[in-house]
């Protein structure tokens, strides 16, 4: 089922949580809503679910205006950030809840409920824990039970609020791969909210970047990473180095050095900000031989998430991250250059 939100505005007192947001969520895709905390992503998710109502704007589910539909009628599955498992019910009863509270006419027989819950517990690989209580589960297990519970009512869309937020680093990596696989099996239209760029880029089919209640960019993970549409996206996604300078002769002049600029259309002499990914900077061991920026290696950090055959260095005058092909000892002078930033 497709989801469309149109011109959504939401304020809490004087705080603008959502400022005229229009977005399409295509059928069967897993979309990540990414942004810093307070950017409005959770509010948007809750408005889509019907847990919050917008001050203005509409929500369309499958093309039909659902803005005034009660959350009960929207047939959405919602996974809460802290799971909101019913603590006085067993895992089994938690998953069965949505089926058992259906109006008498639509309520499946208890035997049907039983087999359906079993199926779901198999799906999330927790059949063995059916009789446990939520407090007896680990965070990752609770998360999966919350998902099974949401799926039990066969929702038309699945909404997940910071699904891995409360988990430790190792579990969240496992679980997000698992979620991706699960989505490939179920193909249910899903939206999940996260503030973790790595998570959004790894799991989603599409990423929506939000900041200050506005949508900054929408696109496939690779697209938003490689062609950031705004300085915010550039600095929010991935490691980036920032150079303040002035444009002259297709170069960004930074103090005594300069970096070539790929784009045209800058006014000569204009003040500009250069965003450079670490891997886009070439390292020259002889600073005198390069037209780029001279720097001194101040500290070498021999670790990093994507470090394979390079190293992270901290340089004077600014803290700059780059990947040096060969080891550069601290204190050595280097030059940096790029081919069009």
């Amino acid at each position: 089922m497709s989801i469309r939100v149109q011109n959504i505005i939401k304020q809490f007192g004087s705080f603008v949580a959502l400022d005229d947001v229009t977005l399409d969520f295509p059928t069967g895709k897993l979309v990540g809503l990414l942004g810093p905390s307070g950017c409005g992503k959770t509010t948007l998710l809750r408005i889509i679910a019907g847990l919050e109502s917008a001050d203005r704007g509409q929500v369309f589910l499958d093309g039909a205006d659902a803005s005034n539909a009660h959350v009960r009628e929207r047939q959405v599955g919602f996974v809460f950030q802290h799971y909101a498992l019913f603590r006085h019910m067993t895992v089994f009863d938690n998953v069965a809840f949505g089926l058992r509270v259906k109006p008498r006419g639509q309520r499946p027989a208890e035997s049907v409920i039983h087999s359906r819950v079993r199926e779901l517990l198999d799906l999330v690989q927790l059949s063995a824990l059916a009789r446990r209580y939520p407090t007896q589960l680990s965070g990752g297990q609770r998360q999966r039970i919350a998902l099974a519970r949401a799926l039990a009512v066969e929702p038309r869309v699945l909404l997940l609020d910071e699904p891995f937020g409360a988990l430790d680093a190792k579990v969240r990596k496992e679980l997000r791969r698992w979620l991706r696989k699960l989505h490939d099996v179920l193909h249910i239209t899903s939206i999940f909210v996260t503030h973790d760029q790595e998570e959004a880029l790894e799991v989603s089919d599409r990423v929506v970047l939000m900041n200050h209640g506005r949508v900054e960019q929408v696109g496939a993970p690779q697209e938003v990473y490689e062609q950031p549409a705004s300085p915010f996206v550039y600095s929010f996604l991935g490691a980036v180095n920032l150079f303040h300078g002035r444009i002259q002769d297709h170069h960004l002049h930074v103090s005594e050095g300069r970096l070539p600029v790929g784009h045209n259309g800058f006014q000569p002499g204009a003040e500009a900000l250069g965003f450079v990914r670490p891997h886009e900077l070439d390292i020259e061991t002889d600073p005198a031989a390069t037209a780029g920026i001279a720097a001194r290696v101040e500290r070498v950090l021999a670790f990093g998430p994507t470090l394979t055959n390079g190293q992270r260095v901290r340089l004077k005058p600014a803290r700059i991250r780059l990947f040096a092909p060969e080891s550069q000892p601290a204190g050595s002078l280097i030059g940096m250059d790029g081919d069009g930033i």
């Binding site: 304020q11 809490f12 019907g50 847990l51 919050e52 109502s53 917008a54 001050d55 005034n68």
Partner: peptide, 10 residues
Amino acid sequence: MSAGQSRRVL
């Protein structure tokens, strides 16, 4: 009471 609160979920 603001418009946003007029329709409460609970």
